[in-house]
C-alpha cells in the first residue's frame, strides 16, 4: 500500500478526542457505566484496561503475520483473556481493595469491544511501535473519560472527589448519581457536550472554508 502514513503524534492524540473510544465510538460502555461510581474506580478500570490493551496490541502486532485470518479472532481473544486474567490475579494479590470495588468487571475486560476492536482495526495491520502508540492513546482516552465520569458521579453522589470530601455537609448527595441511572445521565450529558463542541467546530470549519473559497473567487 502506498498510502501515506498518519503522523505518529496524530495516531496518539486521536484516542483522546477524535476517536475517543467512549465519547465518539461508544465502545466499552458496559464497564464505563458500571464501575464509574467514583473517580478512583474510573482510574483503576482505565489503567487495567490500558494495560491489557497495550500488552495485547504489542503481542498481536508482533505476531500479526503468523496468525491465519480464519483464527485471528480466536487468537486475539485468547491473548486478551490471558492478559485480563493476569491483571485480575495481580490486582487481587497487590490491590485487594481496588479489586473488590471493581468486582466482576475486571474479568469482563475480555469482552470490552474496545480491546478487540483495536486489535482488529489497528494492531493486526500496523507495526508494534505504532500499535503501542495507538493503544496508549486509546487507553489514555478511555481512562480520562472514565475518570471524569467517575469524578462527576462521585462529586454529586457522594460529595467527594478521589475520596476527599469536596462539597460541604449541607449538600445532600444526589444518590441517583452513583446508581446506574446516574451513569447514564452523566454519560448522556458528556456525549451531548462533546457532540455540541464537535458540531460547532465543524460549522466553524465549513465557514472558514467557504470564506476562503469566496476570497479565491474574488481574487
Amino acid at each position: 500500500m502506498a498510502k501515506k502514513q498518519t503522523p505518529i503524534g496524530t495516531e496518539f492524540m486521536k484516542g483522546l478526542w477524535d476517536q475517543n473510544p467512549v465519547l465518539k465510538a461508544l465502545l466499552g460502555l458496559c464497564p464505563t457505566l458500571a464501575v464509574t461510581t467514583s473517580a478512583m474506580n474510573g482510574v483503576g478500570m482505565g489503567v487495567a484496561t490500558t494495560f491489557v490493551l497495550v500488552c495485547a496490541s504489542l503481542l498481536i502486532s508482533l505476531v500479526r503475520k503468523a496468525i491465519p485470518t480464519q483464527v485471528r479472532i480466536a487468537s486475539f481473544i485468547v491473548v486478551i483473556a490471558t492478559f485480563v486474567t493476569i491483571v485480575d490475579l495481580e490486582m487481587k494479590a497487590l490491590f485487594p481493595a481496588m479489586s473488590k470495588s471493581l468486582g466482576a468487571f475486571i474479568p469482563l475486560i475480555v469482552v470490552n469491544c474496545l480491546i478487540l476492536g483495536r486489535q482488529e482495526a489497528f494492531a493486526s495491520k500496523n507495526n508494534p511501535f505504532r500499535s503501542i502508540v495507538d493503544a496508549v492513546g486509546m487507553g489514555l482516552g478511555f481512562t480520562l473519560t472514565l475518570t471524569v465520569l467517575g469524578a462527576v458521579r462521585e462529586l454529586l453522589g457522594n460529595r467527594t472527589m478521589f475520596g476527599f470530601q469536596v462539597l460541604p455537609d449541607a449538600f445532600e448527595p444526589w444518590i441517583v448519581m452513583i446508581l446506574p441511572a446516574g451513569a447514564f445521565l452523566t454519560l448522556g450529558f458528556m456525549l451531548g457536550a462533546v457532540n455540541t463542541i464537535t458540531h460547532r467546530r465543524e460549522q466553524a470549519a465549513i465557514a472558514t472554508r467557504r470564506a476562503a473559497s469566496l476570497t479565491v473567487k474574488e481574487a
Binding site: E172, P173, W174, I175, V176, M177, L179, A181
Partner: peptide
C-alpha cells in the same frame, strides 16, 4: 429523580 437521589427525604 428525587426518589432515587433523596430516598430518605
Amino acid at each position: 429523580f428525587l426518589q432515587a437521589s433523596f430516598p430518605a427525604g
